[in-house]
Design a binder for these strands. Structure first.
Length: 1112
RNA sequence: GGGCCCGUGGCUUAGGAUGGUUAAAGCGUUCGACUGAUAAUCGAAAGAUCAUGAGUUCAAAUCUCAUCGGGCCCA
C-alpha cells in the first residue's frame, strides 16, 4: 500500500503512543544526533525544573517551546545541545520530605538525623526526576534522557550510599558508590539530564564564591525576617504573599513613653507587645501635624488626625500644635530600659524620635514604635540611623537570657503578662482588640514573628545616583549591579519589555542574601573562627582537602552536603584557632544560576565550554524569573566572565484555568498533565501553546484544546485522508508528474512557499505564534478552496494530466506542511509522514524528524496570482451570499452570475471565471463595469417635508418623485435639487425631500461589498430545473451506493421508477447521471432480485431507486 | 510610592512596530445549505462609538499625554 488513511474518528493520544513506540524501536532521536555531530552548534540552556512533584500543564508550555526550537534547529542541520535540567536542592524539597515523614519542626529533623534526612531529600529528587522524565517524553521532548528505571534503581541503591553499584547511563554503564554516582549525574560520562545537586554544580559555586571573596564581596550581615517559631524556620516574603495571611484578632496596646527633659509622654500603639522589649526609637512623619494634649491629668503627644480614634469620647484638651519635624531628636524612657539585654546593647541611650516617610494616621497614634530586632522595616530604619539591634527571641520563639522575668517564657504567652507589667509601671494607657490580616506559617498556621538573624550576603554594588549611561567604566569596575546591567543588554529579550523589567530589578535589587538556616542544599563554603572575627571561603574540594586540619576522613567519599562536610575544620589564619563551616545552606538560585558553567565543564574543559557558551536561546515563564533565574544566570556569568550567558531570552506568561483563575486543586479547575496527555493528547496541547502569544497568560482547558482538534487537526486530517483515498485508488505515485499545472495548482503552491518562507524566517527569530496562525490559514484555504475546487479533478476515471497535476500539487502541499509543522506537533506529523511519504518515496528518511527543513522556492511565489485568487474567493463568497438570500439551493444550476467590478479587477478575474462558475453552480459568469446591470436607484419621497410644502398635492408630487429616472436620482444623491412637472407646473424637489436608495434589478439576487457587486439570475428555466432534478437524483443514488457499502469505484446498474416528470429527467440527463454514479446502464422499472433499493421524495415527487453491482 | 504589562461584539482572542476603504477570527445565538472528506463540512445574519478624556494629523483601535479599571514585580 502506497498511502494509508488515518481513521477519521482518530484518538490522538493512541496515535501518539504508536509514534512513541516507533521512535523508540528505531532509535530515531539517536540517529538524528549522530547525523548532526560536528555541524554548526546550536545551544539551549534549560532552566531547571524542581524535581519535587509531578510536572504540571504549566510546565508543558515552556517545555513545548524548549523542544520545538531544538527540533527546528535539528532540521536546519545544526548540532544541538539541549540538556534537560533538574533543580534538586532547597527548602521546597525539605518541606515535602518533612511531610512524608510527618515532621512538624526542625527539631524533628535533628532527632531523625541530618544525614538520613539529606539522603531522603536526594531520593525524593531521584523519584520525581524519573516521573518528570517520563512525562516530558510523553510531551514529545527530545533530548538525552536518563532511563527513568535507572534513576529509580539509583534511588534504591542510595539506601546504602557507600556501597558499589552500577548506573546504565546514556553512554553505557558506570560503576561507583551510589553517592558518587548520584553526584556525577548529568556529567559527560553519565549522560542524561543535569542535576543541581551534583558535585560539580556545588563545587563550581564554591569557585564563584571564592572569587567574590577575593574581591571582598562576601560579607556577614543581619536581617530581620518573618519566622515561624513552631517550625523554627524563616519564611520568605514570597511564601507569605501566596497563602500566608489570616484574619486575626489581637489585643493591641496604647502606652506611654515618658519624655526625657520635657513634660508629657509620647503615646505609642502596638499590636505586637513582645516587641516592646526591643524598642529603640519612635518614628514620626516630619510633615504631619502633631498635638500636645492633656487628658485625665496626663500630657500626651500624638498626631492630630488620630485624636478621634484614640479619645473616642473626647475629654482631652489641646495644649499645643506642632509639626512632626519639631520633635525629631527628642529622647524618652522606654518601657523595658531596666532589662539587661537592652541595657547592654545601649538601647536606653539610643532612644530618640526619628523621621520616617511611611508613618500614617490610618491607625495608631501617628507615632511608631521601632524595634530593629523585631521587624523588617524597623531593621532597615535601624541600619539607616545606626540604631542598636535588640533581638529578644530565639528560633523557637522563646525570650532569651537577659530579659528578666520574660526570659525563658514563650512569645505566644507574653501579651497578658506584659500588659500587667505595663500597668504596674503606670505607663499603660489602654488595651484594645484589633482585627487585622496577620502573616501565618503556610505549613503549620502558626503566627509568625520577626527574628533577627545573621546572614551571609553578596555585595551586589551600590546604587549610583545618576542616569545609567553616565555611569563610568571606573565606577562599574567594582560594582556588580552595573556590570550585570551591561550583560543584560547584550541579550535580546522577548518580549522587548523584558529588558526594561530586568534593568528595573537590577536597579532596585538589594545585596543577595545567599544563606538559609536549613539542612538540605549547597553547603556554603564559608569557614569562620569561633575565637575571632576571621573567615575564609574555600573554592574547591581540593583546596578543602589541602587545608583540612581534621575531619577529612569523615567527609571522604561523600557529596559536599551536610552533615559530612561540616566535619572538616581548617586553621584560622588570624588567631590560629579551629575554624568551622557556618551551618547554613545556600540559596537555591545559586544552584540554578551556575549551570551555564557547571554543566559545560568550565573548570575542567574550557574548549568544550567555549563551544557551547553562551546559549543561543533560553526560555522560561517570566513571572518571577527576572529576579530569580534570569537574575542568577546573569549574576554568575557576570562574576565569572562579565558577559551574558544567553543571546536570546524568551519569557512567556502563566497558565490559568479556563475560568481565568489560577488552577487550584480545591477549586476543581486544575488539570493534571497526565490527564491532559491521556485525553487531549500532547500535540493538541503543544499546538494550543504555540498558537498563543507568549507574553499573554493562557486560559488552558478542554474547550481550547477541543477547538484545536476540531478546527485545525480534523480539517487537516480530512484533507490528508481525501488525498490518500483517491491516490491509493488511482495508483498515483510521486513519479507521475504532470506536464502542466493549472492556475489553481500554481496558486496553492505559491501560498505554500510563502508559508514556508514565513515559517523559516520567523522560527529563526524565536517567534512561533504567527507561524501557527499562518499554518492554520493555509490549512483552511487548502481545505475550503483548493480541495473543494479540485474535487472533481480527482473523480475522473481516466488518468489525464490535469489529474496528475492535482495529485502532485496536493502531495507537495501535504508533505511540505508536515515538515513545517514537525517541530510543533512531532507526533501528528510523524503519523502523517509515515502514511504519506514513506510508501511513496523509497529513499525518504525513515522519520519526519530525520528530514531536513524544506527549501523555499521563491520562483513559485506569485504575488499577483495570490491577489487574483483572493479576489475570486471573495466574488464566490459574495455569490454564495446572493444565492443564499434568494433561497435557491446550491444544487439548482442557474443561468448566470453577473460581477460588477472595475476593469482592472475584471481583467484579473477573467482566467479564474471557471472556478467561480463551478463554485456558484452557474452556467456562466458575466463581467461588466456597469452597475446599472444589477442595481437601480429608488427614490422615496419624504412626506414629513413635502406635506408642509404641497398640502393636498402631496400624492401627485410623490408619484412624480417615485417615477424619477436614474439621472435625476443620482443628482439628488449628490445633493442637487431637481425639477419635476406636476399638473403642468414645475416643482422643485430639494435633496432632503427625497431619499435615494439602491435597489436590486428585477430577476437578480445581488450582494454588494467594497466596490464589488455580484448578482445571480434567479430565473429557473425548465432546462435548468431538469438539471437540478438530475443533480438531486445523482445525490440519492450516491447516498444509496454508500448505504449499500459499494466501493467507490464499483460499477452499477441502476433501475428507477417514479413520477413521470422525474422519469423524464432520467431520459434527458441520462449521460450525466451515468457518469456521475458509475452506472453502466439506466433502466426504467423495477430491478431483478438482490438489488439495493430506496424510496425518495424530491420536491414532493416520488422516486424509487434499485442498484445492482456489476462485475468487471 | 516606583517599574512593567493589559483593557477590542455576550465570552476568548487577532490586529497595534510602519496611522489610510466597511476593525478580523473562534465560541455562543439565529437562519440556511451541502452530501462518496460525512457523528464531518459549508454559508449567511445579528452583535464593537476598539476602557474614558484630551492632543498630534487631512486621517487614530494603532502615535503622545492624562484618568479609570485589572494583573505582575519591587518598595
Amino acid at each position: 500500500m502506497t498511502f494509508e488513511q488515518i481513521d477519521g474518528k482518530v484518538d490522538i493520544p493512541s496515535l501518539e503512543r504508536e509514534v512513541t513506540e516507533f521512535w523508540n524501536a528505531n532509535r530515531v532521536y539517536e540517529k538524528r544526533v549522530e547525523m548532526q555531530a560536528g555541524r554548526q552548534p546550536w545551544t539551549f540552556i534549560d532552566g531547571p525544573i524542581t524535581a519535587n512533584n509531578p510536572m504540571g500543564v504549566h510546565h508543558a508550555w515552556g517545555r513545548t517551546y524548549k523542544d520545538l526550537w531544538a527540533r527546528y534547529w535539528f532540521m536546519r542541520g545544526r548540532e544541538v545541545r539541549n540538556q534537560n535540567g533538574f533543580d534538586c536542592q532547597g527548602l521546597w524539597i525539605e518541606v515535602e520530605v518533612e511531610k512524608e515523614l510527618g515532621f512538624k519542626s526542625k527539631r524533628d529533623i535533628e532527632s531523625y538525623g541530618v544525614a538520613e534526612f539529606v539522603k531522603k531529600c536526594k531520593q525524593r529528587v531521584l523519584e520525581f526526576s524519573a516521573v518528570q522524565t517520563e512525562q516530558s517524553i510523553r510531551l514529545g521532548m527530545w533530548t538525552d534522557w536518563d532511563d527513568p528505571g535507572e534513576l529509580r534503581k539509583l534511588k534504591a541503591a542510595l539506601e546504602d550510599p557507600l556501597a558499589e553499584t552500577t548506573y546504565v547511563g546514556t553512554h553505557g554503564p558506570v560503576t561507583g558508590t551510589a553517592e558518587e554516582l548520584v553526584g556525577k549525574l548529568g556529567s559527560r560520562e553519565m549522560g542524561g539530564s543535569y542535576f543541581t545537586f551534583s558535585d560539580e554544580n556545588n563545587y563550581m559555586i564554591w569557585t564563584v564564591l571564592k572569587r567574590l571573596h577575593e574581591r571582598g564581596l562576601i560579607y556577614k550581615g543581619h536581617d530581620s525576617m518573618p519566622w515561624c517559631p513552631r517550625c523554627a524556620t524563616g519564611i520568605s516574603q514570597h511564601e507569605i504573599v501566596t497563602e500566608g495571611y489570616r484574619e486575626l484578632t489581637h489585643a493591641s496596646v496604647y502606652l506611654r513613653f515618658p519624655l526625657r527633659g520635657r513634660e508629657g509622654s509620647l503615646l505609642i500603639w502596638t499590636t505586637t507587645p513582645w516587641t516592646l522589649t526591643s524598642n529603640v526609637a519612635v518614628a514620626i512623619h516630619p510633615d504631619l501635624d502633631y498635638v500636645k494634649v492633656s487628658h485625665e491629668g496626663e500630657v500626651y503627644y500624638l498626631s492630630k488626625g488620630t485624636l478621634p480614634t484614640v479619645f473616642p469620647s473626647g475629654g482631652y484638651e489641646v495644649l499645643e500644635e506642632l509639626k512632626g519635624a519639631k520633635m525629631l531628636g527628642w529622647s524618652y524612657n522606654g518601657p523595658y530600659d531596666e532589662l539587661e539585654m537592652p541595657k547592654s546593647l545601649g538601647a536606653p541611650e539610643a532612644h530618640r524620635v526619628i523621621a520616617w516617610g511611611e508613618v500614617g494616621e490610618a491607625e495608631g497614634t501617628g507615632m511608631v514604635h521601632i524595634a530593629p530586632g523585631a521587624g523588617k522595616e524597623d531593621f532597615e530604619l535601624g541600619v539607616q540611623y545606626g540604631l542598636p539591634v535588640v533581638g529578644p527571641l530565639d528560633e523557637y520563639g522563646v525570650f532569651k537570657e537577659g530579659l528578666g522575668w520574660l526570659s525563658k517564657t514563650h512569645v505566644y504567652d507574653s501579651p497578658q503578662p506584659i500588659f500587667d507589667d505595663l500597668k504596674e509601671k503606670g505607663i499603660l494607657f489602654r488595651v484594645q482588640d484589633y482585627t487585622h490580616r496577620y502573616p501565618v506559617c503556610w505549613r503549620c498556621g502558626s503566627e509568625l514573628v520577626f527574628l533577627h538573624a545573621e546572614e551571609w550576603f553578596i555585595d551586589m554594588g551600590r546604587v549610583i545616583d545618576k542616569p545609567l549611561d553616565e555611569v563610568t567604566e571606573e565606577e562599574k569596575e567594582k560594582n556588580l549591579r552595573y556590570q550585570m546591567m551591561d550583560s543584560a543588554k547584550q541579550a535580546r529579550w522577548i518580549p522587548g519589555f523584558g529588558l526594561a523589567r530586568e534593568l528595573d530589578w537590577l536597579k532596585n535589587m538589594h545585596d543577595w542574601m545567599i544563606s538559609k538556616k536549613r539542612y538540605y542544599g549547597l553547603a556554603l563554603p564559608i569557614w569562620t573562627c569561633p575565637d575571632c572575627d576571621w573567615y575564609d571561603v574555600i573554592g574547591s574540594k581540593e583546596e578543602l582537602k589541602e587545608r583540612a586540619i581534621e575531619g577529612w576522613d569523615e567527609f571522604r567519599g561523600h557529596s559536599p552536603h551536610k552533615p559530612y562536610v561540616d566535619a572538616v575544620k581548617i586553621r584560622c589564619a588570624k588567631c590560629g584557632g579551629t575554624a568551622t563551616r557556618i551551618p547554613d545552606v545556600g540559596n537555591p538560585w545559586l544552584d540554578a544560576g551556575i549551570i551555564a558553567y557547571s554543566t559545560l565543564d568550565y573548570r575542567t574543559d574550557r574548549k568544550y565550554w567555549d563551544k557551547w557558551f553562551p546559549a543561543h536561546f533560553i526560555t522560561e515563564c517570566y513571572i518571577g524569573q527576572f529576579r530569580n533565574w534570569f537574575y542568577s544566570m546573569l549574576a554568575m556569568s557576570t562574576i565569572l566572565e562579565r558577559r551574558t550567558p544567553f543571546e536570546v531570552v524568551m519569557g512567556h506568561g502563566t497558565v490559568l484555568a479556563e475560568d481565568g483563575r489560577q488552577m487550584h486543586k480545591s477549586w476543581g479547575n486544575a488539570i493534571w498533565f497526565d490527564d491532559a496527555a491521556d485525553t487531549m493528547g500532547a500535540d493538541t496541547m503543544r499546538w494550543l501553546f504555540c498558537s498563543w502569544k507568549p507574553e499573554n497568560d493562557i486560559l488552558f482547558g478542554y474547550t481550547g484544546t477541543g477547538d484545536v482538534k476540531r478546527l485545525f487537526f480534523m480539517p487537516l486530517l480530512n484533507v490528508f485522508n481525501f488525498f490518500t483515498i483517491y491516490a491509493e485508488l488511482d495508483g498515483w505515485t510521486p513519479d507521475q508528474q504532470p506536464e502542466a499545472l493549472t492556475e489553481l495548482d500554481r496558486w496553492i503552491l505559491s501560498r505554500l512557499n510563502s508559508l514556508a518562507r514565513h515559517a523559516t524566517e520567523e522560527l529563526a527569530k524565536y517567534e512561533v505564534f504567527s507561524t501557527c496562525k499562518e499554518i492554520e490559514r493555509f490549512v483552511d484555504v487548502l481545505s475550503r478552496w483548493y480541495v473543494r475546487r479540485s474535487r472533481r479533478r480527482f473523480w475522473r476515471s481516466e488518468a489525464d494530466d490535469d489529474k496528475k497535476a492535482a495529485y502532485a500539487t496536493l502531495y507537495t502541499c501535504l508533505k511540505t506542511l508536515t515538515l513545517l509543522m514537525a517541530p510543533v506537533t512531532p507526533f501528528l506529523t510523524e503519523a502523517i509522514y509515515q502514511r504519506l511519504v514513506r510508501g511513496a518515496e523509497p529513499d525518504a528518511p525513515e522519520s519526519v524528524h530525520l528530514c531536513t527543513w524544506p527549501e523555499v522556492d521563491e520562483g513559485l511565489i506569485d504575488e499577483g496570482l495570490m491577489e487574483r485568487m483572493d479576489l475570486a474567493v471573495r466574488v464566490s463568497s459574495m455569490g454564495r451570499a446572493a444565492r443564499n438570500t434568494s433561497g435557491i439551493k446550491l444544487r439548482q444550476p442557474l443561468a448566470e452570475a453577473v460581477v460588477v467590478a472595475d476593469t482592472d479587477d475584471i481583467e484579473r478575474l477573467m482566467s479564474l471565471r471557471g472556478l467561480v462558475e463551478e463554485e456558484l453552480n452557474v452556467k456562466a459568469v458575466r463581467f461588466t463595469s456597469e452597475s446599472g446591470e444589477l442595481m437601480g436607484l429608488e427614490v422615496k419621497p419624504v412626506f414629513a417635508l413635502l406635506g408642509k410644502k404641497h398640502g393636498r398635492n402631496v400624492p401627485r408630487v410623490a408619484e412624480a418623485i417615485k417615477a424619477l429616472g436614474k439621472a435625476e436620482a443620482v443628482r439628488l444623491q449628490n445633493g442637487e435639487a431637481v425639477e419635476i412637472i406636476v399638473d403642468g407646473a414645475t416643482v422643485e424637489v430639494l435633496p432632503e425631500e427625497a431619499e435615494v436608495a439602491p435597489v436590486q434589478v428585477e430577476g437578480y439576487s445581488v450582494v454588494e461589498e467594497a466596490g464589488l457587486l455580484v448578482g445571480v439570475r434567479t430565473e429557473i428555466t425548465p432546462d435548468l430545473e431538469r438539471e437540478g432534478i438530475a443533480r438531486d437524483i445523482v445525490r440519492r443514488i450516491q447516498s444509496l451506493r454508500k448505504e449499500a457499502d459499494f466501493e467507490i469505484d464499483d460499477r452499477i446498474a441502476t433501475y428507477y421508477s417514479g413520477d413521470p416528470s422525474i422519469e423524464e429527467v432520467f431520459e434527458a440527463e441520462g449521460d450525466y447521471i451515468k457518469a456521475e454514479t458509475l452506472s453502466v446502464e439506466l433502466t426504467k422499472g423495477e430491478a431483478p432480485g438482490g438489488a439495493y433499493s430506496g424510496e425518495f421524495d424530491i420536491d414532493g415527487k416520488k422516486l424509487g431507486l434499485y442498484l445492482l453491482r456489476v462485475d468487471g
